[in-house]
Design a protein around this nucleic acid. Structure first.
Lengths: 340, 340
DNA sequence: TACATTTACGTAACCGTTTTAGTAAAAAGC
DNA sequence: GCTTTTTACTAAAACGGTTACGTAAATGTA
């Protein structure tokens, strides 16, 4: 590796001059700068990020903590899309991203926070299901700049999709299609779940429609089997729902399978809607009606807010950034106007 | 941040002693080691990776280059699964992963190789569609330890899924279900495509079945619309195929949609099969018959081979590691025994 | 001309770690 | 008891940068 020392030798200047020239300091003559830059390029010089980080305490590296329960967030469509957008945003601004993990490095196992300190991340983005993990809590409570996705913490910036509004819009759409017997299968308890659930009840009340207890069931996110089981129960009711809302698109597929197995048609006999708007939903038949989350915007805002927090901590507001989703009208919710 | 210097002060020993104690060198007394370790733990010490990297020239960081055409590989189900598995494997062994990119860092744009040198990655994994990008070529030709996925290069370890065998198995399965008029819509030209295509022809010949030119069409990977268009053309043939194979599961969905639009039933009227085995294929109706790639194994082998290459370059074979996939029997390929 | 200011560069300390070479004290050898 | 070996530690240089401070020469000012 060619270093500043090499450049300084061939240019006949000191290392300090090389450093200043390459960093465009004002106290270096223009010709000298030009010479140094030219030879740097010629010699194939590139700065050593470790050395720079050591001295400046800035790594231009952002830690990413995306932990699903068993699987990492990578194979989770929603998170993968958010991460992809986040990645582009921060890379534009000169940052790289590295995954945080709690594996052993060498011999000693590290907590997430220890790993962050070890790597010297300038900031961290956290998006995961289990925010109550004590390792996650330790990280969140630290003094590292952090942006969380879809979860609120004291004194931390959070980018959250507007679950309440999303649920309201979805339900409104379904209502406007004529449905009155609307069921909601929700995911495991979490802030997101609670937000959607309360919005579901509230909106239903606003429309003056009654939601019997049997119309609300708890499944788990992205669990097609669970969703299928609950769907079966609902179909077995004396007065089954005319439309079922699911915690996510995957779960919705699970429900759809059961419905089809029963010989019922979607949407003629029963309507369904998902949540998230994963890519494949638009490519299958019938096209999935769902609440499409704006993963791109979430990623961009998370990136911008985090970098602001890193670069101008004083002027950055600690706030909740809300991103709205949008109903994607597919073919799984039909019009309903039979007698109630 | 607490450093070795702090520990050395509280323990009344030199910094060198601290370093050696923590790295378990033999020339430090047991009691001293114990004391130093204890105080290190107590003071919340963690090594500074930048400083260590600067001195040792080892970052324990692996660069990941996953570039799809427009979108990054992150939202690509196949790559995301490979990456996930790769990530777990290397993290187990104390390595982190960071994405390589060619964005500007600060002001100057870097090539992939420059970025790798800047970050000092110990090794790199490359998996992308466009291996002919000159930046990618530059990287591959460098002296950094590299493992590629699904592409062969001289003197580089490659982990490839056995496309030829996969195609053969899939076609054999379809043949055994009684199909003789089998079409193949393949992806854009690439090593993978060629491998599958030649295997398709070869296997067909072995079975003594004739493949008319109209039964082979070129679409693009993960392009549902293109796949749909070609499917239409094939359905319009005087003697349409009884089964169509697609370049990937997504494309297969595209074909299925067209088929359903035409009022044809899958698999009663026409059979289809995908390639890859993405998760959602198992959760939709009818369940997709496909060649399931062993993404987990690919990731593990890529990780293990790369680390071996990094840690014992002398003894590591430069070779092609082949991973076999397996036919996942869903419901989209039916038995066919009408007269030919 | 004499002094103050500006310009352009160099010196050297420092970031946190590893490692080579050295050293004093303790143990072993005879 | 003296030399040799072993044990347990330290000093200091080095990795590749950044930066506060110093300084000589060039320029400006009166």
């Amino acid at each position: 590796m060619v270093s500043m020392k090499d450049i300084s030798k061939t240019c006949g200047v000191s290392i300090a001059t090389v450093s200043k020239a390459l960093n465009n300091h004002t106290d270096i003559g223009e010709e000298t700068k030009a010479l140094i830059r030219a030879t740097a390029k010629e010699m194939g010089y590139f700065p050593n990020s470790s050395a720079r980080a050591l001295k400046t305490n800035r790594t231009y590296n952002i830690g990413v903590l995306f932990v699903d329960e068993a699987r990492s967030g990578l194979t989770h469509d929603y998170f993968a899309n958010v991460l992809d957008s986040f990645k582009r945003t921060v890379e534009e601004r000169g940052y790289d991203i590295t995954f945080i993990n709690a594996s052993k490095s060498g011999k000693t196992k590290m907590t997430y926070l220890e790993h962050c300190k070890y790597r010297g991340f300038d900031g961290v983005i956290v998006a995961c299901v289990n925010f109550y993990d004590k390792d996650v809590e330790e990280l969140i409570r630290s003094d590292i700049p952090i942006v969380t996705v879809d979860h609120l913490f004291n004194n931390r910036i959070a980018v959250v999709s507007d679950n309440a509004k999303g649920m309201k819009e979805l339900l409104t759409y379904v209502y406007n299609q004529g449905h009155r017997r609307i069921a909601y299968i929700h995911g495991a308890d979490s802030a997101v779940t609670r937000s959607r659930l309360s919005s579901f009840y509230k909106t239903a009340e606003e429309f003056g429609i009654h939601v019997p207890d049997e119309y609300v069931g708890e499944a788990a996110y992205r669990d097609t089997l669970r969703a299928g089981e609950i769907t079966e129960k609902m179909l077995d009711l004396d007065v089954p729902p005319s439309c079922i809302l699911y915690p996510d698109d995957f779960s919705c597929f699970g429900g759809m399978n059961i419905i089809k197995e029963r010989g019922l048609r979607i949407p003629e006999d029963i309507s369904v809607a998902g949540f998230d708007g994963i890519r494949v939903g638009r490519h299958i038949e019938p096209q999935l009606t769902t609440l499409k989350q704006d993963t791109k915007k979430i990623g961009v805002l998370a990136g911008e807010n985090l970098i602001n927090l890193i670069e101008k901590p004083k002027t950055t507001l600690i706030e909740q950034v809300v991103v709205e989703g949008k109903v994607f009208v597919g073919k799984t919710v039909g019009t309903f106007n039979k007698e109630m």
